[in-house]
Computed example of a mutant assay.
Amino acid sequence: MRISLIRVDDRLIHGQVVMGWTQALGIEQILVADDEIAVDETQKQLLLMAVPAGVTADVLSIADSATIVDASDSDVSTLILVRGPAELAALHREGVPMPRVNVGNVHTGPDRKRLTKEVHATEDEIGIWRELAEAGVRLEARWLPSSPVTDLARLVGAQS
């Protein structure tokens, strides 16, 4: 499987992903790696309704997503979506290669610190971001393909 982009976005499949990222990168396949939605047929079908014509998509558990990535020798341009840093870390632990990750949108809420305009995190999540960065994952906060890139590792105090 040719991973064109791994994106963290708590909205998962939505207009920005469909119109911005899939078109800009020529995405042919979307893989949502999410344990909760993978077993919720209603939520799964709602997400899949947003997939544009000509793009295939599936919603699988994190473990099943990692298995598919590992077993596939396809050259299809693929976008992998996860909802937050915990899911990204789980995918990383499963062995999915991720030299670069786009962090697009993680909403605000109670006990969440603003890292960028679009990315907020709890102290625990900041620790996860830091661990991923220190493990060699390049974390780029970037909302749209045309937006400037912000080094998220620097914002969470990761050691190089």
Rank of each mutant, 00 (worst) to 15 (best):
L12F: 00
E36P: 06
L12H: 01
A135H: 02
V76L: 07
E36D: 04
Q16G: 05
Q23S: 12
K44W: 03
A38H: 08
G15F: 01
L155Q: 03
R154V: 10
G20R: 10
E36Q: 11
G109A: 14
K44R: 15
L152Q: 11
M19C: 01
V17S: 00
E28D: 05
A63P: 09
A90M: 04
L88I: 04
V59T: 03
V55L: 10
A133N: 09
V96W: 03
R93F: 07
I6T: 06
V156I: 04
L132E: 05
G127M: 12
K117F: 07
I3R: 05
R7K: 06
E118Q: 13
L132P: 01
R100E: 14
V17P: 09
L12W: 01
W129E: 13
S160I: 09
I80D: 10
S74A: 14
D64W: 01
V59H: 08
L144W: 13
E131C: 01
I27V: 08
A33R: 08
L60P: 08
G26L: 04
I68V: 13
E134G: 04
A90H: 09
P110Q: 14
I80P: 12
R83Q: 03
T78A: 09
S65L: 02
I128V: 15
I68Y: 14
E134A: 02
K44S: 03
A24I: 11
T67M: 12
G109P: 15
I68E: 13
S160G: 15
E125W: 07
G104Y: 11
E41K: 06
I126H: 03
A89T: 05
A50S: 05
S65A: 14
E123M: 14
V106S: 10
R154P: 01
A86C: 07
R112N: 10
L152C: 06
G15H: 07
E131R: 10
D151V: 02
Q23K: 14
I13Y: 00
G104I: 08
L31P: 08
V18D: 04
S160H: 15
E36Y: 12
E140A: 11
D9W: 02
G26Y: 06
E94G: 02
G136D: 10
R114L: 12
A71I: 09
D35L: 00
T42P: 00
L132Y: 05
D40W: 02
I62G: 07
G104M: 06
P97W: 05
D111A: 15
T78R: 13
L155A: 04
P97H: 09
R2D: 13
V137A: 03
E131F: 07
Q43V: 01
D10C: 02
E140Q: 11
R93T: 13
T116M: 03
T42C: 02
R154N: 11
A63V: 09
R114H: 12
E131A: 15
A24N: 04
V8S: 00
V149P: 12
R154W: 02
S65M: 05
P145D: 14
I80N: 10
G109F: 13
V96I: 02
N102W: 11
I128E: 13
D70P: 08
D70A: 15
G127L: 10
S72G: 05
Q45C: 00
V82R: 01
I6F: 00
E41Q: 04
D58V: 03
A38T: 03
G109I: 14
I80H: 12
A63S: 15
A53E: 08
V69E: 09
D111G: 12
Q159F: 08
V51T: 12
D35N: 08
G104T: 12
G95Y: 13
A89V: 01
